[in-house]
Design a protein around this nucleic acid. Structure first.
Length: 218
DNA sequence: CTCCAGTACG
DNA sequence: CGTACGGGAG
C-alpha cells in the first residue's frame, strides 16, 4: 500500500521517462497563453493554433491591439477555433477586465495572492475554473493545478476517482496529495493532456503501449 | 458522423 | 439539469 502522493509522483516520473519534458507554453507571451486558454475551451488544439496564427499574421497578439479591434472582426479571425462568436466576446470580456484591473500589465495580476487571482478571473464572464487555472498556472506562473476532461477520464479509468466528479473535487484529488510546486503542476498537467490525446482516447483507448498502462488496476 | 484543454444560461 | 455554441479532422 502506498500513499496517493507516491502513486502520483511515480506516474509523473513514468510519463517523464516515456515522453520527455513537455516544455508547455514556453516561448509564448502570457497574453498569447490567455488567448489559447480561452480558444481551446472544448476545442481541438490544432484549430486553436489556426486561430492564433491568423491573429499573429495581423500582428494582433497583444492586448492593446486586440482591444482596439471590434468584436465582429475578432470573431472572423478566430473562426477556425469554433464557438467563434462566443469566444470573441469572452476575449473582449477578458480585455476589458485586463485593462481596467491591471492596465494591460500581467505583473499587476501576478502580484496578487493566487486565490485572489483565481477569484478575479472567475469574475470575467466566459472564464470558468479550468480557464482561470490555466491562466494562473501557464501565464502567471502560479502553483495552481489544472484539471480537465482528460484528467477525469484517465484517473477515472484507473479507478482513482468516481466517473462523475466535480472540477473542485478532481482538483482536490491532486492538490491534497502533491507539494505545491509550480513546475510540477505545469509538467504534470501537460503530461496528462499528452497521454489523453494520444492514448486515453474517448472511444478507443490505446492502453497497450500507453506510458500509464503499468498503473492500471487489476 | 463523432469528437474536441468548457462555459453560461434557462 | 439540458442545451447552445462550431469549425476541422479522423
Amino acid at each position: 500500500m502506498q500513499s496517493r502522493q507516491t502513486y502520483l509522483l511515480n506516474m509523473h516520473a513514468a510519463m517523464l521517462d516515456a515522453l520527455g519534458p513537455s516544455h508547455w507554453w514556453p516561448g509564448e507571451t502570457p497574453f498569447e497563453i490567455v488567448l489559447g486558454a480561452i480558444l481551446t475551451q472544448n476545442t481541438n488544439w490544432e484549430n486553436v493554433r489556426r486561430a492564433l496564427n491568423a491573429l499573429r499574421a495581423q500582428n494582433l497578439l497583444s492586448a492593446p491591439a486586440l482591444a482596439a479591434l471590434d468584436t465582429e472582426e475578432l470573431a472572423a479571425l478566430i473562426r477556425p477555433a469554433g464557438y467563434y462568436r462566443v469566444k470573441a466576446g469572452r476575449i473582449k470580456n477578458f480585455l476589458r477586465f485586463f485593462e481596467h484591473e491591471a492596465g494591460f500589465d500581467f505583473t499587476v495580476l501576478q502580484a496578487l495572492p493566487t486565490p485572489e487571482i483565481r477569484e478575479r478571473l472567475l469574475g470575467v464572464n466566459g472564464i470558468g475554473p479550468e480557464t482561470a487555472d490555466s491562466i494562473a498556472l501557464y501565464a502567471l506562473d502560479k502553483p495552481t493545478f489544472v484539471v480537465d476532461t482528460y484528467t477525469a477520464r484517465i484517473f477515472g479509468r484507473h479507478g482513482q476517482i468516481p466517473e462523475e466528479i466535480s472540477y473542485a473535487d478532481l482538483q482536490a484529488y491532486f492538490t491534497e496529495a502533491l507539494p505545491e510546486d509550480t513546475a510540477l503542476f505545469n509538467e504534470f498537467h501537460a503530461q496528462i493532456v499528452r497521454v489523453g490525446k494520444h492514448w486515453c482516447k474517448k472511444k478507443q483507448p490505446q492502453c497497450h503501449r500507453c506510458p500509464l498502462e503499468p498503473f492500471l488496476p487489476l
